[in-house]
Write a protein that binds this DNA or RNA. Structure first.
Length: 713
DNA sequence: TAGGGTTTT
């Protein structure tokens, strides 16, 4: 499209950090004076005009009404807590207000990638710049920032990574921690580090600001943590949602859910229905019941279109919840917690809430995780309810009694007190924190959990006898994988099998890569996997991952890759991620190789293995090298020596550490086989104790790989 | 012969 030529000289005015900067142009569009830039004048004008059209909408946001009062508070205190419900505009507007008042960069952290990207994109439009210029974002695999970027939206994990490189965060003059109420491990860690920064490292820097933003009313906790920081409330902009409870508690949540869906469908006027259930199994059951009975329902009511939604669902099927349906149809979305925060579906007017969710609880004293179905919190119930009132007034049907509701805990339990905290503890060690037990924990994970983490790190040689971080620990802290897998990578590098191990570690770093096939396809897919992965069939699941990786990598067209993935019940999207992670791991390994080689050459440890098949310096993926499964599995033993079990005559297995019985999970290629000893990546307790991602090992490898951990043999 | 909520470097 031809552009209109501007004839008269003109000026573009931009406000940066409260300073008005004018840029003067001659009639032919050449810049004659003003600030330096790379844009064509037409582009910048377009962006500024777009921003102007957005201003009216911004002024209607609740946060705009209280702007002056809010900014007064934020400027007067080093730490503030801001409570703002959904729709208040806090995440988009407050950082922009702040940009005009303070000098220096502002970081805004988000628990999720998509949120960081979407917010940065939106705010760039409002500000009138391209993403990555004045306003940008940083998430894993994607950095849209420049030297000019003053406002940076980023994931929690990214800010923590920056903290590891610059513990003073000297680049920033303000950090805004958004969605703090979600209390993820990473958010909790950031809040602890910020407190430390304020009390110790930057205690004299009066210009450094911290703003904690939360959507629920649990502000007191944050305020108390930051020395009674003032709290500011902003109203939200959700529509009213009526709540209904059951008169009596029910046992069968699936039956209750199906009945409620049918009733809502018959009695309520138009609008889609969003149902919250704890897990995939419940969702699949309800979906299939609805498919069966939908044709038999009365014609007057809309036709039900059941749509499952959970993380392990292939992306194409997930996207179906956004499709439009015909006028006489009604979408009934059956979802896990994913629809509570991560996925927002337009058109929902009714919510049916089972009041349940699943959580993974780490038992540090046993070194295993359990998966539990538990009641949600009041905060979570209110969040689910709010999903019905985003566009119009709605209704929420709670499949529990009002009395049950009253008994729910106020807030969701912070993740950090029920998780493995080996990595958080390593981070603290890396940042020089000696007294882990009395650190600035927003929620202290507890003495026994902390000691268990320290012991794990010691066993991985990440900590010395005196509890100080070792060179190895420093490397593990930097690698973008768990410390256990980090130890594996470093060992693999010494054994000269790094390339292969990086392939496997990348596979293990992706969730839901190997899907659990629907029961009717189960036998076919299991047989296909065994037939495809002949070495995996013998040596186990880690070797299987390498075989799958090789085949995927050797297929050239994406269409063929997709078909192949489907035939084996593996995730295509997951494998795409595997390749990105593989590349990132490889870059990290390369960068630490230079420093490390120097030391090793003198130590002489295992140099016999460091021979011509050493592939540690090459980024290239190798699919043709013969697989040295022994060295590969021994590398894994370095990180998972405690996850081993010995085969008993009765075909059961006993763990090496505690002697407890453990079974090979039926999803494993080694399921049903008789093996002397096994190593597993994960120990989960559901119906009974299961080992997942299992490999066959030899008992004498145990003593060889970790003499100092297995004194009792 | 099990099954698995959600994030992220």
């Amino acid at each position: 499209m031809p552009r209109k030529t501007v004839q008269k000289p003109f000026t573009i005015t931009v406000i940066v950090q409260g300073t008005v900067i004018k840029d003067n142009y001659s009639g032919d569009g050449k810049r004659v004076s003003g600030f330096r830039r790379n844009y064509k004048h037409a582009d910048i004008l377009k962006l500024k005009m777009k921003a102007r059209t957005l201003l009216d909408g911004r002024k209607k946001l609740p946060v705009f009404k209280v702007k002056d009062e809010l900014m007064k508070q934020l400027m007067e205190h080093r730490v503030s807590v801001v409570i703002g419900e959904t729709g208040s505009g806090k995440s988009t507007q407050i950082p922009q207000f702040l940009m005009k008042q303070i000098k220096g960069k502002i970081a805004v952290t988000q628990p999720r990638r998509v949120a960081a990207i979407n917010l940065a994109t939106r705010v760039s439009e409002e500000f009138g710049c391209d993403v990555g210029r004045d306003v940008g974002y940083a998430v894993r695999f994607n950095n849209a920032t420049s030297y000019k970027t003053m406002l940076k939206y980023m994931t929690d994990g990214m800010l923590l990574r920056e903290m590891m490189l610059d513990p003073l965060l000297s680049d920033y003059s303000a950090v805004i921690v958004d969605e703090a109420h979600e209390r993820t491990i990473l958010t909790d860690m950031i809040l602890g580090f910020l407190k430390e920064l304020l009390v110790r490292k930057r205690k004299d820097d009066k210009n450094f600001r911290v703003i904690v933003m939360s959507a629920t009313l649990d502000a007191d906790k944050f305020s108390a943590f930051f020395n009674k920081a003032p709290i500011f409330f902003i109203e939200g902009r959700l529509f009213h949602v009526d709540r209904y409870y059951l008169p009596h508690s029910v046992d069968d949540i699936i039956d209750s859910m199906v009945k409620s869906i049918i009733q809502v469908n018959q009695e309520q006027t138009k609008g889609d229905v969003l149902c919250f259930l704890p897990g995939q199994e419940d969702i699949d059951k309800v979906t299939s019941i609805l498919h069966q009975i939908a044709p038999a329902l009365p014609r007057e009511a809309p036709m039900i279109v059941p749509l499952p939604l959970y993380a392990a669902l292939p992306p194409q099927q997930q996207l179906k919840v956004f499709d439009k349906v015909k006028p006489h149809q009604r979408k009934v979305i059956l979802s896990t917690n994913i629809a509570e925060t991560s996925v927002t579906i337009p058109g929902v007017r009714y919510v049916i809430d089972s009041g349940l969710r699943k959580i993974k609880v780490w038992r540090h004293e046993l070194g295993l995780s359990t998966l539990l179905t538990v009641p949600i919190s009041k905060a979570s119930a209110s969040q689910r309810t709010g999903r019905a009132g985003r566009e119009a007034p709605g209704k929420c049907f709670r499949l529990y009694t009002e009395n049950d509701y009253i008994k729910l805990s106020q807030n969701t339990e912070p993740e950090i007190i029920r998780s493995e905290i080996v990595y958080p503890v390593l981070m603290l060690k890396r940042l020089g924190v000696d007294d882990i037990l009395n650190w600035f924990w927003l929620e202290n994970p507890g003495r026994s959990a902390l000691i268990a983490a320290l012991q794990q790190l010691y066993a991985l040689n990440a900590l010395s006898d005196s509890g100080k971080i070792t060179d190895l620990g420093e490397q593990m802290a930097v690698l973008p994988v768990t410390p256990h897998l980090g130890a594996v990578l470093i060992q693999a590098s010494k054994f000269g099998v790094l390339s292969t191990v990086m392939d496997i570690v990348a596979c293990l770093s992706v969730d839901n890569l190997i899907l659990t096939p629907p029961s009717e396809q189960r036998d076919v897919i299991n047989a296909k996997r065994r037939e495809t992965c002949t070495l995996g069939d013998r040596y186990g699941d880690l070797v299987m991952l390498k075989e799958l990786f090789n085949i995927y990598n050797d297929i050239s067209s994406s269409d063929e890759r997709r078909i192949w993935c489907k035939s084996l019940g593996v995730s295509y999207k997951g494998f795409k991620n595997v390749l990105r992670i593989r590349k990132q791991i490889s870059q990290y390994m390369d960068s630490m190789d230079g420093r490390k080689n120097e030391k090793e050459r003198h130590s002489g440890v295992e140099d016999g293995n460091k021979s011509k098949n050493d592939d540690s310096n090459e980024d290239e993926i190798k699919t043709s090298v013969p697989l040295n499964y022994e060295l590969v599995l021994k590398s894994f033993l370095k990180g998972f020596i405690t996850n081993t079990a010995i085969g008993m005559p009765d075909r059961s297995y006993r763990t090496v550490t505690s002697g407890d019985t453990i079974s090979i999970h039926p999803s494993s290629l080694l399921f049903g086989k008789k093996i002397d000893a096994v190593m597993y990546i994960e120990h989960v307790y559901t119906m009974k104790g299961y080992a997942r991602n299992v490999s066959a090992i030899k008992t004498d490898w145990l003593r060889e790989m970790a003499p100092h951990c297995l004194d009792r043999g």
